[in-house]
Design a protein around this nucleic acid. Structure first.
Length: 509
RNA sequence: GGCCCGUUCGUCUAGGGGUCUAGGACAUCUCCCUUUCACGGAGGAAACACGGGUUCGAUUCCCGUACGGGCUACCA
């Protein structure tokens, strides 16, 4: 049987990184098994629908390289993949009817207010967790407690109703989780979950099962927050007489500090994004940052996410998607929640940047430079940009830091590091720099090595150690006391630029 | 409150009865390299939540406690 996994978010807003990780694991597993990965949109709650969320989800997954084989936006033999559309085809009601017919579900006419009252009454009696179940259902208005005639009448009248799962108490419900092993529950503690809501929409509980069956899902992968409702899901499969797919409940992603799971609000408050892509709230206009816009490589973002709760059992940490597909296994997913570490996230990006090809980085950087400096500026050329990349590559974690970090490569300094000037600038050094342009003019091939040799020779001739003027030279060229390799920078900037910077410094210091 | 899941350095984690003097990575500290800063290299500090069992022997198995997390909607 072909492995089929799905990722089934609800379009209530941007996908957060925890959701992306769930999608990733489902994708990795499917690909490893030469199976299919499906994107299903669970939009059964029309009140929570957020415009743009669906597009966001598709764009985010695509950016990450987690490409569905079937689903909303990708087509496939089980269309439609949007639950609101599937509802109109009667898929969910079909299954609900089957449960109704077999006596495993029933109509309930209680309004939300009635349930509130029942709950409040129970609380005043000191009962903490009231629920609609075998112990309370006969005191409510439903097709189990009401005479058949009345039920008929209510239905004929068009009275609003929900369909509830009839959970029989006193049995142990067990299933084997791919990550946690055997997990069991007492059915007495499971409530009679609503299967079909008053508006005719199915709830998650019914909908995901119907769709997983119809879409031939073999492995259901979801977050740990679903574990408590697993017994109800086991029961639905039992009542339907259909074998359950294998389930995996993933550990949650926790906040970097403090308590609780990582939530949408945490991100920008703590200085890191929680979303893969930037998101603008359609109502408030509030903008939340995204990993893409921060300059992360999608591969690094995915790599980082993969390692949060899973490890290969070797010491390898940097992976490509291909390698992840090969190495992944649910047996090696950790059971406890993982606290997200923004520093480690940056490290993954840095690693990928370090191993990137200079020419390719240079090409991208030259495009950026062209938009900053102009198409014709020689410093926007591929050659110059590649030269700059070589000098800057080990000093940044993101490509988008090249320009700011190496700004002095693109414009002559207007200020000079005061500490170095105060310490080193004197008559002797001034004389040295007055003589330096002539010496540099005579250097035949203007390379780092030749310039360095000429520089040192001049220093010796003037009776000083190169170290006495080296840092000054750096400040004269770049304005800063520290930075990229000095003579590498000299070679890149070229003879006339260097000489002009020396002359500028001589008049302004 | 109830139910479920969990608990190894600050963080992500390896290890699943003796090989543990508990390993790696991020972060941190020291030193080396270097014209500076980074990079890189070397090294340091840093953890088995607690209490009972089981066992010749528990970080590893069992139970309890504590702590953390999740769920407890006609939301997913």
């Amino acid at each position: 049987m072909t492995t089929r996994t799905r990722f089934a978010p609800s379009p209530t807003g941007p996908l957060h990184m925890g959701g992306v990780r769930t999608a990733l694991y489902a994708y990795l597993f499917a690909k490893q098994q030469q199976g299919k990965f499906i994107l299903r949109i669970e939009d059964t709650d029309q009140n929570r629908y957020v415009p743009g969320a669906e597009e966001y989800i598709i764009e985010a997954l695509t950016w990450c390289g987690i490409i569905p084989d079937e689903g909303v936006g990708f087509g496939g033999k089980h269309e439609p993949y949007r639950q609101s559309e599937r509802k109109h085809k009667g898929f969910y009601m079909n299954y609900a009817q089957q449960l109704l017919n077999n006596g495993n579900a029933y109509y309930a006419f209680d309004r939300p207010e009635d349930i509130d009252i029942a709950r409040k009454n129970a609380e005043t009696d000191g009962v903490q967790g009231w629920q609609y179940d075998a112990s309370t259902r006969m005191g409510m208005r439903n097709s189990l407690s009401l005479p058949e005639q009345e039920v008929r009448h209510l239905l004929d009248q068009g009275t609003q109703y929900v369909i509830r799962l009839k959970v029989n108490p006193g049995q142990t419900l067990t299933f084997t989780d791919m990550i946690r092993g055997e997990v069991s529950f007492d059915s007495s503690l499971v409530d009679d979950k609503v299967l079909i809501k008053a508006d005719g929409m199915p709830t998650y509980h019914l909908a995901h099962i119907v769709d997983d069956i119809m879409m031939e899902i073999t492995h259901a992968i979801r977050g740990e927050e679903w574990l408590p409702s697993a017994p109800a899901h086991i029961l639905i499969y039992q009542y339907l007489g259909i074998p359950m797919p294998l389930y995996a409940h993933l550990p949650l992603l926790l906040k970097p500090e403090g308590n609780g799971k990582l939530s949408k609000r945490d991100g920008d408050r703590l200085g890191f994004p929680v979303f893969p892509l930037q998101w603008k709230d359609p109502v408030t206009g509030e903008i939340s940052s995204g990993y893409r816009e921060k300059g992360y490589y999608p591969e690094s973002f995915v790599n980082m996410l993969a390692m949060l709760g899973w490890n290969p059992g070797t010491e390898q940490e940097v992976f490509t998607m291909e390698e992840l597909i090969n190495a992944f296994s649910f047996e090696r997913v950790h059971k406890a929640g993982a606290r997200f570490d923004p520093d480690k996230a940056k490290w993954y990006n840095e690693q990928r940047l370090r191993h990137s090809n200079d020419e390719e980085l240079g090409l991208k950087f030259s495009m950026e430079l062209k938009s900053i400096l102009g198409e014709e500026d020689p410093r926007s050329s591929h050659d110059f940009a590649t030269g700059a990349v070589k000098l800057l590559k080990e000093r940044v974690q993101f490509e988008n830091e090249f320009y700011e970090t190496g700004k002095y490569l693109f414009e002559a300094p207007s200020t000079y590091d005061e500490k170095v000037i105060a310490k080193r600038w004197n008559e002797k050094s001034k004389t040295f720099f007055q003589a330096l342009p002539d010496v540099l003019t005579k250097v035949e091939h203007f390379t780092a090595e030749n310039c360095k040799a000429a520089f040192e020779q001049l220093a010796t001739e003037q009776g000083m150690k190169p170290g006495d003027v080296l840092q000054l030279f750096r400040v004269i060229v770049s304005g800063q006391g520290s930075g990229v390799d000095l003579f590498g920078m000299v070679e890149l900037l070229g003879r006339s630029e260097i000489i002009s910077r020396i002359q500028k410094a001589l008049t302004s210091i």
